[in-house]
Nucleic acid binder design. Structure first.
Lengths: 205, 205
DNA sequence: AGTGGTTCCGAGCATTCGCTCGGGTTAGCT
DNA sequence: AGCTAACCCGAGCGAATGCTCGGAACCACT
């Protein structure tokens, strides 16, 4: 398998001007990846579109991979934050458990749909995706969030193997939503997806 | 997004000698993709490792993408065949429904595990994966297999929306297995995965 | 105004890789 | 044997791309 590249940031921007440069580079990299795919993300092009010279790019990122990794890590952190917030809101609702689960599902769908193109390109084309720490830790993070939901809600999962069940249930729901958002199966609208998933989860709890 | 490349075969091998050449190229491409990732699959390298000249490679494949696509399509057809066979065997078992479901799950896990590295590289790195027709049709094919299983088994799924439910259930189980095989979560052994999945599916039927 | 650190610049180097093309070799047939 | 089509060969072309490097411009501080 391909060797994991160096993803460490090279240098920290100190002045405000430099911070803006780095932000512009990250934005442009993400935009380009989402709209034209990984092959279109060339360092020269990113620098040009960001209104920055290629030399400046290499002041803050050791190589191309580190740039893309930073852009993806930022997007992933946003997603995790939104899903976590969604769970908190879900637990606060009076119409448990259906209302809570429904709300949480919608939060996940929204978080993924907002970044649909970026996620598609990342998952399908970025070779070093799994050497980005935020990506590797995602499933653990999600599992922790799910466990928290299980503890705090009044309902409990009744399985012989609650740990594996929670992990699998979360993993399955997440995969199904991701799949549906990215692949858009023609006969499965967003509403139908959410409703069916809610029913299935309720049946399992 | 990147434009879909031409994946049509250029010319058919007629003599046995030529057929062997094509097979060697497909084998080598798959092996290289599985062991070193997509970046390592260069046409010159594939030809060299296959013991064939680069000129001969381009006799039978119009471009690099078509070569990789052909190798992946072959692997996918094998997987579908094994999963379909697994369902037939499952339906013939006396210990329904648990024994059948368990058997089918094992068939899926085995089919995917056998090609673990190849699938990992394909799913993570091959940019044009979704312009391969066998890939695009996979989820439909699987759904049809699942529908067949639902009809032929004595048990029926009792959902308000049986079509969406079957699709989602199949999609979720498939994703969960694929996920588990490719990412090998540390606390989820094969046995634990299969057992938990069987329990969940039984609970949903 | 001087100074040292920070930021920015962009032409071009070095390398890689997909693919062509002109020509040689082999198989199958009469 | 002679002929044609199928098959095979591999040096090298052309284009793309990651990244360097020497130096200019800018900022914050005294």
């Amino acid at each position: 398998m391909t060797q994991a590249p160096d993803l460490q940031a090279k240098k920290q921007p100190r002045q405000a001007r430099a911070k803006a440069t780095v932000e512009a580079l990250l934005d442009t990299a993400a935009r380009l990846l989402a709209s034209e795919g990984y092959a279109a993300v060339t360092t020269n092009r990113v620098a040009e579109l960001a209104g920055v010279s290629i030399g400046s790019l290499y002041e803050y990122f050791p190589n191309k991979e580190a740039l893309v990794a930073a852009a993806l890590a930022r997007a992933l952190r946003e997603i995790v934050a939104e899903v976590t917030l969604g769970l908190r809101e879900a637990l606060a609702r009076p119409d448990q458990p259906r209302g809570g689960i429904d709300h949480w599902m919608r939060a996940m769908v929204a978080a993924l749909e907002q970044r649909e193109a970026l996620l598609r390109a990342a998952l399908r084309e970025v070779p070093f995706l799994w050497s980005i720490s935020e990506v590797r830790e995602l499933s653990n993070t999600l599992q922790q969030v799910a466990q928290e939901g299980r503890y705090k809600s009044s309902r409990l999962v009744h399985f012989e193997d609650p740990e594996a069940s929670t992990y699998l249930l979360m993993s399955m729901v997440w995969s199904a939503i991701l799949q549906a958002v990215l692949y858009r199966p023609p006969h499965l609208s967003r509403e139908r997806l959410i409703h069916t998933l809610v029913e299935m989860v309720l049946k399992l709890l």
